[in-house]
Simulated scan of single mutants.
Amino acid sequence: MSQDPPYKKAYNSIFKMYSSRSNVPKKLPPVQGDDATLPLIDLSRLFSGEIEHERCVEEMVEAASEWGFFQVVNHGVPQEVLDMVYHEGRKVFDQPCSEKTRENFLNLSKNSYRRGNPNATSPSQFFWSEALQIDLTEIPNLPEDNKNLRTALEACVQEMTRLAQMMCELLGKRVKVKPNYFEENCIPANSNIRINKYPPCLSDSEIVGLIPHTDTDFITVLSQDTVGGLELKNDGRWLAVKPRPDALIVNIGDLFQVLSNGLYKSIEHRVVSSRRCRERLSIAFFFSPDQDVEIECVGNPKLYRRFTLKEYKEQIRRDVKATGDKVGLARFLVDEP
């Protein structure tokens, strides 16, 4: 079976390097985790009186502290909007690789379209996926022949921004973040949206769809289809998140872990590849501040030193270049050597 993008051809040296090793098994260890039962929170309770409102917020706080992940239903994002993004995103991914990798594809900035990991030097750093990541300021620039994609993204971003800001303000209030902090520092133009495609893995090696990582933003709002593949790390074990069609997944990012002085947890997660000849699609909305906003712990003693998102991303780039991996918040601990 041929592939487009031609992952195996493009990363042939990695697969050859792995298969030539004599001291490792032919395949990487299986990556399928146990099933996870994420906290499920009904957001309609926020509007069902003061007592139910407080209980709902308390469940969000508990989930953000213990899991770093939770699911929300009755979130207000219309399913038809998500379906429209999936439909238009699939049409983009179905275009030839030569088109998707050309300069100024869809009038987007460089590296908006991504496949695999160009920095990978080993199978453990390679991931079997495509992504279209779009800064919100770029959506109006999408070509006229992609106006349906533009319309779908605009509608989705409007709903996701509303939802992300509301949840951040509620979680922030519990850790004494000043009122309207997120409204002031997370204007829509600072965030971005990404459509992910995870093709069935046709390799003989056990390759993940997305390598283990934490998100950099305040929170991520994720819609996934029914194929499954998302896993999170909890107490040292990988747990598989079973898709639920009516729910969105919310996870805490690095910046919120800092802002909450470590109360809320930014948890490592990954996507495993499907070997059932079914592709997986997801939509991720990353709620982020301006590059120059200083992120400072609320409360004392402070676990992390103050930094800007720009500083944080620059440190990540240096670490990835030097080590192949994101070191992350460990670089910004107050007592770092």
Rank of each mutant, 00 (worst) to 15 (best):
M1I: 14
D4I: 12
P6L: 09
N12Q: 15
S13Y: 13
I14R: 00
Y18P: 08
R21V: 08
V24I: 15
P25S: 15
K27N: 09
Q32V: 14
G33S: 13
D34M: 08
D35G: 07
A36K: 10
P39G: 02
I41H: 00
I41P: 00
L46H: 09
F47Y: 14
E50F: 04
R55T: 05
C56A: 06
E58C: 09
W67Q: 13
G68C: 09
F69A: 03
V77M: 04
Q79H: 03
Q79G: 01
Y86L: 12
C97M: 06
E99R: 07
K100N: 09
L108C: 13
R114V: 14
R115I: 10
F127E: 11
S129G: 08
A131N: 11
Q133E: 04
I134T: 01
I139W: 01
P140D: 06
N141T: 13
P143R: 06
N146D: 10
N146I: 02
N148Q: 11
L149Q: 00
L153S: 09
L153C: 08
Q158C: 13
M160P: 01
L163H: 08
L163T: 00
Q165S: 13
Q165Y: 05
L171W: 05
G172C: 08
K173A: 14
R174D: 11
V177T: 14
F182S: 02
E184A: 12
E184S: 11
I187L: 10
R194E: 07
I195G: 00
L202H: 05
L210G: 06
I211M: 10
T216P: 01
T220N: 08
V221E: 05
S223H: 03
L232P: 02
P245Q: 11
I249G: 01
I249M: 03
V250C: 10
N251K: 03
G253W: 04
D254E: 02
L255W: 05
V258H: 04
L259D: 10
S260W: 03
V271N: 01
S274W: 00
S274K: 01
R276V: 12
I283W: 05
F285I: 00
S288I: 05
D292T: 12
I295M: 11
E296T: 15
V298G: 04
Y304C: 01
R305V: 15
R306Y: 00
V320D: 01
A322F: 12
T323N: 08
D325M: 05
G328H: 00
V334M: 14
D335T: 11
